[in-house]
Each structure stands twice: as structure tokens, then as C-alpha cells.
Amino acid sequence: MAMDAREIEAMIKTAIPDAVVSIRDLAGDGDHYAAEVVSESFRGKSRVEQHQLVYRALQGKMGGALHALALQTSAPK
């Protein structure tokens, strides 16, 4: 079952309340998305640690309901 972009955004914002999230459906199939997530909580963390925070927010849906997520993360400038 595919995920809706709004559901992905809501899950990320629930886990990372200050996050500014932008989601794009790459293939129109609800399985392949690109996400940009900006949060102060990423400051001082490695890219891997930032991505882990986002994947944790998705509560195990990566690889299941959500097939692919091209992820860009950063702290605010």
C-alpha cells in the first residue's frame, strides 16, 4: 500500500516538530518520493545521523509502504 505525501510530512513533523518539510512524488505512484527536511535538531549531526532521525520518524515504513525516499537534510542557515 502506497503512502500519501501528507502522511509522510505529518510523521516527520510529529517526530521533529520544528522541521520544515517539502515532499515531491517523483513517479506519481505514491512509492517514490523526494523529501527535503530542515531542522535545528540536525545542527552538529552528521548526514547519516540526520537521515536516521528522519527514518526513525517514518516508523519502519521505509522499504514497505514507502519504497523509495531521496532525502536531503540540513540545519537552517
Rank of each mutant, 00 (worst) to 15 (best):
Gly63Ala: 03
Ala70Met: 14
Asp18Thr: 02
Met62Gly: 00
Gly63Thr: 05
Val38Trp: 06
Gln59Asp: 15
Ala70Ser: 15
Pro17Asp: 08
Ile16Phe: 09
His67Trp: 12
Ile12Met: 09
Gly60Lys: 10
Leu26Cys: 12
Tyr55Leu: 12
Arg6Asn: 13
His32Leu: 07
Thr73Phe: 01
Glu49Gln: 14
Met62Ile: 03
Asp18Pro: 03
Met11Thr: 10
Ser74Pro: 10
Ala65Cys: 08
Phe42Lys: 03
Ala34Lys: 00
Met1Arg: 15
Phe42Arg: 04
Ala15Trp: 03
Gln50Lys: 05
Leu71His: 02
Ser39Thr: 02
Tyr55Lys: 07
Ala68Arg: 02
Asp4Gly: 09
Arg56Lys: 14
Gly64Ala: 10
Pro17Arg: 01
Ile8Ala: 10
Ser41Ile: 09
Phe42Asp: 08
Ser22His: 13
Leu66Gln: 12
Pro17Asn: 04
Leu53Ile: 08
Asp31Trp: 07
Val21Ser: 06
Leu69Gln: 01
Ala27Pro: 08
Glu40His: 09
Arg43Gln: 14
Asp18Ile: 05
Val48Leu: 14
Ala75Arg: 04
Tyr33Thr: 00
Gly30Met: 04
Ala27Arg: 10
Thr14Lys: 15
Ala75Tyr: 09
Ala65Trp: 10
Glu7Leu: 14
Ala35Pro: 01
Arg24Asp: 08
Glu36Met: 12
Gln72Glu: 09
Gly44Phe: 07
Pro76Ala: 06
Arg24Met: 11
Gln52Leu: 13
Glu9Ser: 02
Lys61Ile: 11
Ala57Leu: 08
Ser41Asn: 03
Val54His: 01
Gln52Thr: 14
Lys61Gly: 07
Leu71Ile: 12
Gln72Ile: 02
Gly60Ile: 02
Leu69Thr: 00
Phe42Ser: 04
His32Tyr: 09
Asp25Leu: 00
Leu71Met: 07
Lys45Glu: 01
Met11Glu: 12
Asp31Thr: 07
His51Asn: 15
Ser39Asp: 02
Ala10Asn: 12
Glu40Pro: 03
Ser22Phe: 10
Thr14Arg: 14
Gln50Asn: 12
Ser22Asp: 15
Ile8Thr: 11
Glu7Arg: 15
Gln72Asn: 11
Val54Ile: 04
Gly30Ala: 07
Asp18Gln: 02
Ala10Gly: 12
Leu53Tyr: 03
Gly64Asp: 13
Met11Asp: 11
Ala27Asn: 09
Asp29Asn: 01
Val54Glu: 00
Leu58Arg: 00
Arg24Thr: 15
